[in-house]
Design a protein around this nucleic acid. Structure first.
Lengths: 112, 112
DNA sequence: ATCTTATGGTCCATATAAGATTCAAAGGAA
DNA sequence: TTCCTTTGAATCTTATATGGACCATAAGAT
C-alpha cells in the first residue's frame, strides 16, 4: 500500500483559514448570494465552496483567493491599487537582493 | 482523452498570491534561511516552496499559510491576537445570522 | 582558480483535491 | 400543513498538485 502523507497545520494557519472562510460566508450572505451562485461566479463547485467557507486547508489557494475576491473580501486589507503598489515594491526590493543566502552562523529564531 | 479543466484567475488573485510569495521570500532571506530549511520547517518540498514564492495559485492553501506563518508573515492583521479576535467576532456574528439566504430581489452588484 | 552550497528548472509516480452525484434535513413562502 | 429552495454531508471518479530525483547554473567561501 502506498504511504499516506498526512500534513499537520499550526493553530495559526487553521485560524487564518477559518477566518477567511467565515468572512467569505459573511460577505456572501450580505450580498444575498446562494452558495451555488457564488461557486458559479468563482468557477468552482459548490462542494469546494463549502470546504472553503469551513476553513478547510486542503484547498487550492487560487480557488480561495478567487472566491474571496468575488465575494468582496480584500486580502491583506488593501485595495487593488495598494496591493499592486506593494507588489511592485516587493519586486524592486527583491531585485536588489542576492539570489541566494549564505549561512555564516546558525542565527535562527522561531518566535511564534 | 479526459477533458482537462483549466481554471482562470483574476488579476487580483494573481497579484495577491504574487505579493504573498514575495513577502515569504523576503522574510526567508531576512532570516537567512535556505529554501530547503524553510521547506523542511513547513513540512513541504523545496519545489513547492519555489512555486509558492513565485505566486503560483495552484498550491494548497494550507501549505502556503503554514509557510507564511513560519516565515513570520502575519496574515490579515498585525499579530496573532488580532487574528484570533477577528475570528471570534466573525463566529459570534455568524451565530446570529440565519443559515441560509433567500433571494427576494436580484440585488447583486460586483464592485471590483 | 577550485570547492561547496543554493537555486531554478524539468520530468515522473502517486497521493490527493476537485467535480459530480446523491441524499437528508432545514428554511422560507404559499 | 404543502411545496420549493438551500444547505450539509457523504461517496466516487477524475484531474492534478505534490514529492522526489534529476541536472545546470549561480553564488559564496577558501
Amino acid at each position: 500500500m502506498p504511504k499516506t502523507i498526512t500534513r499537520t497545520y499550526s493553530r495559526y494557519s487553521r485560524d487564518a483559514a477559518a477566518l477567511l472562510g467565515a468572512l467569505i460566508r459573511e460577505a456572501r450572505n450580505e450580498r444575498k448570494l446562494t452558495a451555488q451562485e457564488l461557486a458559479d461566479r468563482a468557477g468552482i463547485s459548490r462542494g469546494l465552496l463549502q470546504r472553503i467557507e469551513k476553513g478547510n486547508l486542503k484547498c487550492e489557494i487560487g480557488a480561495v483567493f478567487e472566491t474571496a475576491a468575488i465575494a468582496g473580501i480584500k486580502l491583506f486589507e488593501a485595495d487593488e491599487g495598494a496591493l499592486a503598489k506593494h507588489l511592485r515594491q516587493a519586486r524592486e526590493k527583491l531585485a536588489l537582493l542576492p539570489k541566494s543566502v549564505r549561512k555564516t552562523s546558525k542565527a535562527v529564531n522561531d518566535d511564534f
